[in-house]
Design a protein around this nucleic acid. Sequence first.
RNA 1: GGUCCUGUAGAACAGUCUGGAGUGUUCGCCGCCCUGUCAAGGCGGAGGUCGCGGGUUCAAAUCCCGUCAGGACCGCCA
Length: 609
Amino acid sequence: MIRTHTCGELRAGDVGSEVVVCGWVDSVRDHGGVLFVDVRDHTGVTQTVAHPDEQPEGFAAAEAVRGEWVVAVRGRVRMRPEGTQNPDLPTGAVEVPIDAVEVLSVAEPLPIPLDERTETDEILRLRHRPLDLRKERLQRNLRTRARVSAAVRAALEAEGFVEVETPTLIRSTPEGARDYLVPSRQTPGSVYALPQSPQLFKQLLMVGGIDRYYQIARCWRDEDLRADRQPEFTQLDLEASFAEPEDVYAWIEAAMRAAFEAAGRSGELPETIPRLTWHDAMDLYGSDKPDLRAGPPIVDLAGVFAGTAFKAFAATLDAGGTVRGWRFRGGGDLTRNRLDGLIERAQHLGAKGLVWMVVEADASLRAPVAKFLSDAELAGIGAALDAEPGDLLLLAADTAQTASAVLGQLRLDLDRPAGHAPVEAGGAGVSPLWVVDFPLFEDDGAGGLTPLHHPFTSPHRDDVHLLDTDPAAVRSHAYDFVINGVEMGSGSVRIHDAAVQARMFEILGMEEAEVRSRFGFLLDAFRHGVPPHAGFAVGWDRLLMILCDERSIREVIAFPKTQTGADPLTGAPAAVGDDVLADVGLQMTPEARAVAAAEAGTEAGDSGA
RNA sequence: GGUCCUGUAGAACAGUCUGGAGUGUUCGCCGCCCUGUCAAGGCGGAGGUCGCGGGUUCAAAUCCCGUCAGGACCGCCA
């Protein structure tokens, strides 16, 4: 053992002990006659000190060390002199006189600062990720992540869930997102795909009698990235036989509580997690992942404007549309410029227009359109939106869907709390909910239907009869868990009835040959005794992002990628030689070759590196 | 595929709107001084292809066009 103690553990009780502490030189404070070297590791900082007359050898050696050198310091722990103890440091009562210091490794000046006050450009942080990882923020996040994973594993094991690994070189099933492809050397011309999720395999595990499966699984989707989307990401995936939605809700809620507790945020989830139907979520918040923290729900005002003389509203209502409104508490002091900006924003979002009203001190409504509205209508608006003086009211007349979508987005623009910090830390806390009863299908934009979730999602038991008459109206047994407007995970009851599954494929317009080719192995397995089963998958990076109060999942991933899917640390993705390609039966097109050459030229000439 | 923001010394920025010598601030780095600091302090110093290319101009970090990189968002993400 090179060290006897970590840098964060020495206390007054250790005085007199001969110790060796190891770590990085956090700071050197040279007073000429007395020299302090703070040694840091992931547990904290210990002050070591040398006087030229008391520790002549240690002083001489310590004078040479610089920031971020890796050192081992040996000495006998002593109390700091009266009046020089540092109550802000856990180790601040003691210090280690430098009897000897061994330089384990020197360090050049760092390309990025490690102090927590400077917000370094993210490309530099990623390029120098090993250094960035030394900082407390990522140390804290990654350790939280490990604790949360362990706690959730324990919680699921306690419920009888069994961790099973599934393959990551799989058959491409061209549904949903684009697959990442891995060419095969042994079968040139054929490719594996990296799984977008373990979906099919976990269903096969149910056929295999595993009964309750879970896995913290890596998934890959070749789509454009966002703050909460990486090309490779992690899911807590689970599936259970003989289970209903209520069972899944209970397991996931238990896992979430375990996760919050492990992150030091127990008690922040409400006793009862609210549930909203998908339909209500779309009406009330214009979103299937509402952030319940951002102001009140949207209110339908069709009743207020029945028979209105205001032509713009009347025309919309006559055409089968509606008028909806949202109240922004205290928004009445927005400048005219801001208000005009809101109208522009609404139009950009697809609204024909936007009506704003400011609630005056006497509760009257000040608005450009007020003169077109009756007193009863104005009073009705104020009552329906629970308006108070100083509020801003926003009204949109459109189809129900568009009106809610536009007001829902403005609601987020204007009133969504930033971040996910606990209430006691001054944040807006967390507000989870279940969104249930998603539609089974959505319009594919070409006159057909496409699964909203995936083609193995069970129709709602009350809507099966609609499959033949009105499939677009069929609800599913699919459900999402949402926290703070972030889709935290989704799941469903799966189809285990061969006839229903066949009908699904039929409605989706999939030929039998195509079905057999893509999913034959699953359907075959289902022919030999498949239990009813249901499952769920939690976006693990997103959950950790919220638990760690981060704005991007990159802050809870050790080695994340940029928005273009690149890793600035290793330079991935990178070209490979023609011989390597030939090995797997591939050849670069002239176009690809030109791009690769341009890239190489850019790297050499552009000082961006 | 699209919209928007950003790019100036090792780092964080100001300077760009309204063109006039690479001007400046903080941190870091190097040297000297300093015996109780803990974001130590004082003095001095080094360090720049203003992302890259082109254009306008007597003159471009600054204006225009293109491009690259990073970020936010829309599309996309069963």
